[in-house]
Design a protein around this nucleic acid. Structure first.
Lengths: 247, 247
DNA sequence: AAATAGCTGATGGTCAGACCAATTGCAAAT
DNA sequence: ATTTGCAATTGGTCTGACCATCAGCTATTT
């Protein structure tokens, strides 16, 4: 009898057959529907019991699929109402959120990675941002100016500023990554800076730096925008490190 | 009778009660165990039927939790064997994988984002990489040299090179992100370059560029490393774009 | 007429028990 | 010593049931 062993060339072509579970199949199908815009954000899925018939599976398998999608933030189930497709696709967010929970050291890595991403973000925003994008950035700048005396509000506007810049790159992945990182850091930043003296002074300095960034963006000067962003991030992270000596 | 309406100060303190499902509770608990290193990668969880008793829940709830963790890549169930904690924490990978499935445009964004990340990666690898890290990089370089005539093998070694550089930064988040992006692009790159003429010539050029990067890393010259990496990535992505005109 | 209370059906969340298929480990047979 | 075959374990799936919640309708009260 002809044997098939490791030395046989055939064995290299013998890949393990794809043994995908029912739930994974269902996940893929629903994902596909969302991708092709058949299911749009806010839409309600058919009731579970009906989906069971349509997919030809038991309720367990279907629910395991829906639960997975729910854990990833794709859909959301509401008792008595139904299951709905979420508006914001927050995969990356969710993933980082869980990952962060797993690995505390990641906070340091996060700050560092954000610096990398945001500096280049500024560059591309200057290159690609259109008038509307820049107007949005300006709006957030105005919000910051109006919140100089409220550090919490100021930080929120600050966050919106950076997000507006990210959106100006027209790179959705970048936006997701920054939302994830900054969103996670936000709470921690707020706590670190609470009850801080000279908060208004610091806000004023921060505002100046943001103005500098916007100016570079308006000129379409990517290099200057990047430099201004780096300076801003370094200065503010330095501010944070004084509260978090282990960095 | 005293009413409670919107104008009552009390109403501000009435927050919606947290209604977390059983599976989410279980997910959080297992995540916590992994985070605290009680459950280590490769470990086998107790059988489902036993976990049910321990958690005091039905099997549905438990399985929905495990399925979610499985979809996120935290654990992996094998019929007849058990459920195991995955070695590599591939949250980001999985997330991007799903996200990519949702948004085809993301491929372009991915290439762009990778450029941002990898250029800075080279910089930090030069700054922080120790001797051992650089030796690993050298190993992959040798593998590339030995695979000049096999484009598939060459690409694999190429991937390992970039990962080794990433690990030299000692930033785990960065490693995850690059693994996710590059891993996803790999298959597509391979397809694009298959049956290409002058593949050996291109490999030789690519190798030169990699040598340049290593040289800068060895000198600890972050700026030069970044520059070399950018040149390499731009040149190779240009190569790709000829196969993918819509970029 | 308007506001309120109560009912009903639909729906997601959970449970219990059953069966299937894959895997492992051991014992029997060769 | 190797192979074969059986039994137990385990994840995967199905079914039917019950609960809590919510939306919408109806009947009651004001």
């Amino acid at each position: 009898m002809r044997e098939i062993d490791a030395s046989n060339a055939l064995s290299d072509r013998l890949r393990p057959v794809a043994r995908t579970s029912l739930s994974e199949e269902i996940i893929a199908q629903i994902m596909d529907l969302i991708q092709r815009n058949v299911l749009r954000p806010g839409d309600r899925l058919p009731p579970e019991r009906e989906l069971c018939k349509r997919f030809g599976v038991g309720r367990s398998s279907l629910r395991e699929a829906l639960r997975s999608l729910s854990a990833m933030g794709v859909v959301e189930g509401r008792v008595g109402e139904g299951t709905f497709v979420n508006d914001n696709q927050q995969f990356v967010q969710k993933a980082l959120q869980w990952g962060m929970l797993l690995d505390r050291k990641m906070v340091g890595d996060l700050i560092e990675t954000r610096l990398m991403l945001e500096s280049e973000t500024a560059f591309w925003a200057a290159q690609r941002g259109d008038k509307e994008d820049l107007n949005h950035v300006d709006e957030t700048l105005a919000q910051m100016k109006g919140a100089l005396d409220d550090s919490s509000l100021f930080l929120e506007a600050d966050l919106r500023f950076h997000m507006a810049v990210a959106r100006a790159t027209h790179n959705t992945l970048l936006v997701s990554l920054l939302e994830a990182t900054r969103g996670y850091l936000q709470e921690w930043i707020e706590r670190s800076l609470a009850g801080e003296e000279r908060s208004e002074e610091r806000a004023r300095l921060s505002l100046e730096q943001h103005v500098e960034i916007v100016s570079a963006l308006r000129r379409g000067d990517g290099t200057a925008a990047r430099a201004a962003m780096v300076e801003h991030l370094l200065s503010s992270s330095l501010d944070l490190r004084t509260h978090f000596p282990e960095g």
